[in-house]
């Protein structure tokens, strides 16, 4: 998050913008050149990347839904407060330690990758959102109640908007954790996705090309998601400042 926000200010400058896009263009050129010289690997690459991205997005959407649901429930009940220390403890567990457990139940499958990634994306979103709800302006909350926002209406028209900036920052952090989780599991035990694409162990010059190709492509995708999805959303949250 800090890195991203920092980058956000840096890239606001026109010169940096031009340089960034020149770099991006350069990387794309490398990808195309290598993939032409390496036969059909562009098709394989895109397929692998799409599959990983699909797993990640799926995991992210599950985490987003579950994290926001848990945060709102905890915030709305006195009992929920006692769960916070438990969650706080759980989030400290290095997530890769849980891989064997997930493998035991689901094997090395897409489903396992998605569920495993979801459990690591969950925490930042949950804690950012919970913090936002707990520190919400008391008078704004009172106003919402006085003007008739109760139950589901309060969640839709007060809690969610209040949590929106936290949802975005939590998502940015969670999404990058999610990339690590997905690629990690893929490299360890899966045969499809960008992980195995990078890990392909033909010890040949062909493999070096594939590696450069994979990393470059990943860089482009992560960069574009930041630029086209998270930055505009992050910009929108500035409006929510009191």
């Amino acid at each position: 998050m800090a890195r991203l926000v920092h980058g956000f200010h840096l890239t606001k400058k026109r010169k940096h913008k031009i340089t960034t896009f020149f770099l991006l263009f350069f990387i794309l050129a490398i990808i195309i050149t290598i993939s032409i010289s390496a036969g059909d690997s562009l098709g394989l690459l895109i397929q692998a990347l799409c599959l990983s991205l699909f797993r990640l997005i799926f995991a992210y959407l599950i985490s987003l839904f579950v994290a926001v649901l848990i945060a709102i429930s905890i915030n709305n009940s006195k009992l929920g407060d006692s769960l916070i220390p438990i969650f706080d403890l759980m989030q400290n567990l290095p997530s890769f330690a849980l891989i064997p457990l997930f493998v035991f139940y689901f094997g090395y499958t897409s489903l396992m990758t998605i569920i495993f990634a979801a459990t690591s994306i969950l925490w930042p979103i949950l804690f950012y959102v919970l913090h936002a709800l707990k520190t919400a302006d008391k008078d704004q909350e009172n106003a919402a109640r006085i003007f008739g926002a109760h139950g589901l209406k309060k969640i839709l028209f007060f809690s969610l908007p209040v949590a929106f900036p936290a949802i975005i920052t939590g998502s940015i952090v969670g999404f990058s954790i999610g990339w690590e989780a997905v690629i990690g599991v893929e490299i360890i035990g899966l045969s499809t996705g960008i992980g195995p694409f990078l890990n392909n162990d033909n010890s040949s010059s062909m493999h070096n090309k594939t590696l450069i190709l994979g990393i470059s492509a990943l860089l482009v995708v992560v960069f574009l998601i930041n630029r086209l999805v998270w930055m505009p959303l992050l910009k929108k949250t500035q409006l929510y400042a009191n």
Partner: peptide, 28 residues
């Protein structure tokens, strides 16, 4: 029907002037 006005206005920062004023009616 009871309405309230707050010292620091307690407007919803994510809504425009028009949407803030409409809030109570929307809830109804």
């Amino acid at each position: 029907k009871i309405a309230m006005v707050f010292q620091n206005s307690a407007l919803f920062p994510w809504l425009t002037v028009r949407e803030n004023i409409a809030f109570g009616l929307k809830m109804e």
